[in-house]
């Protein structure tokens, strides 16, 4: 029984024919070395850039007060910019074990407006409602606060 080439074999042959004679062990080795080296260097550089590239609006740890099925989440947002004022939209959320929203609300500044002058900090407060008793007991994992829009002030 001699078997005819199957789809995999035919695909491999076609690919080899299309790539031409330059696709040999040496070129494969060179290409692999390039991919590995470039990948490692790029990954490392990008990673380090991320480590040192801080968000301009620094969101602190959320502080939570729970009454019944209502959670009031307060968070401090700090503008780390030297010269730009921001008017951010800040949201708070109750997350389940998978990081999905059980409830979400926009937070408002507890004093004054949302304008954050350079190097200034403001407290934002949001109230989370509508979480069922079962979700509250079984699914609620953590509270989170985040900047939805940075919005440099006009």
């Amino acid at each position: 029984m001699t078997s005819s080439p199957d789809l995999l074999e035919r695909s491999a042959r076609t690919a080899t024919r299309l790539l031409g004679p330059w696709w040999n062990e040496r070129t494969r080795r060179v290409l692999f070395a390039v991919v590995i080296t470039a990948g490692f260097v790029v990954g490392l550089v990008l990673g380090l850039l991320q480590v040192y590239d801080r968000e301009v609006l620094d969101v602190g740890e959320p502080r939570v007060r729970v009454e019944g099925l209502t959670a009031t989440v307060q968070v401090t947002v700090r503008n780390t910019s030297e010269d730009v004022a921001y008017c951010p939209v800040v949201a708070v959320a109750a997350l389940d074990r998978d990081g999905l929203d059980l409830a979400k609300a926009t937070a408002a500044p507890d004093l004054g407006d949302a304008r954050l002058a350079p190097k200034a900090s403001t407290n934002f407060v949001g109230v989370l409602t509508g979480i069922s008793r079962q979700d509250f007991d079984e699914q609620l994992s953590e509270y989170a606060a985040f900047v939805e829009q940075e919005n440099p002030c006009p």
Partner: peptide, 13 residues
């Protein structure tokens, strides 16, 4: 983003 970049590094090794 940094997490994805750093998790990629051992893969190249």
């Amino acid at each position: 983003r940094a997490t994805f970049f750093f998790f990629a590094l051992p893969a190249f090794v």
